[in-house]
Amino acid sequence: MALDVQHAGSRVRHAVEVTGLRKRYGDIVALDDVGFTVGPGELFGFVGSNGAGKTTAMRIMLGVLAADAGDVRFGGEPIDLETRARIGYMPEERGLYPKMTVRDQLVYLARLHGLATNDAHAAAENWIRRLGIADRRDDEIQKLSLGNQQRVQLAAALVHDPALLVLDEPFSGLDPVAVDVMSEVLKEKAAQGVPVVFSSHQLALVEGLCDRVGIIRDGAMVAVGSIDELTADATTRLRVDVDAAPGWADHIDGVRVAGSDGGATLLELARDTDEQAVLRAAMAAGRVTEFSRHRPTLPELFRNVVVEGNAQ
């Protein structure tokens, strides 16, 4: 890819650090001590239910909203207006000037972010081609389909070659082709050393794309880490298919029967329980045809921490 050749060599690789963010609206606590770090070249998925505080946190990162406490640093420095010009931002509420043409819009935004006129035109053309909206470049935004408006919105976040990407629900409203384009672009920016933070409800997508994930519930981070780390922390689950009467596992120490699936029994192991002991018990009970460790997927994990957490 010939993209960003002029910047690729000189890009400074910085991490973005969010620490201790707090925000209240009257009696409602929107954010309660939210913190996470996204390293250079890292794709960070921000997940949580509606109203959990994702958008609030992202708006604070951009300086569009002021936090009551806590700070956001990029490359160790607090984010000021100059740094903000180097962030690519896609707000949850999409917005562009309805009566401006695609090209004028992108050139204007690029220039507002500090690009010289010629560079702004080149960058706008580049992203217009890349995102497949070349034949609409002289149309007003309001005449575009919603999907194409989304593409322009992404181009608007990328046109100034940002050093940090903060995207609120970038995949919502995209058709499958556009989802692929978006994923490609995010991976590509990460490969250039840009920290990428994005929120999404599409957990399968986040799981496939992200290096690390943050789960937020009621304004507080309940889990932050790589998917491996998060799933390793979770309860180990075993799937055992054994020729034995139900109830064979009822009395093993540290084991809880979570259910059955076809002929197989699903077991949940308490921390530090030796799965070899479980295997021996199974073999003692009958002929074992399947014995597998089951790692929870992100959706399962999410359900555990968020849904069950809410139920408590």
Binding site: R59, L62, G63, V64, L81, R84, A85, I87, Y89, P91, E93, R94, G95, L96, Y97, P98, L109, L112, H113, A156
Partner: peptide, 17 residues
């Protein structure tokens, strides 16, 4: 009002005061 209604103001204010 146009900038508020179209929400473009949020992108603008992420860059300028």
């Amino acid at each position: 009002v146009e900038e508020k209604a179209s929400r473009v103001v949020e992108i603008l204010l992420a860059t300028i005061r």
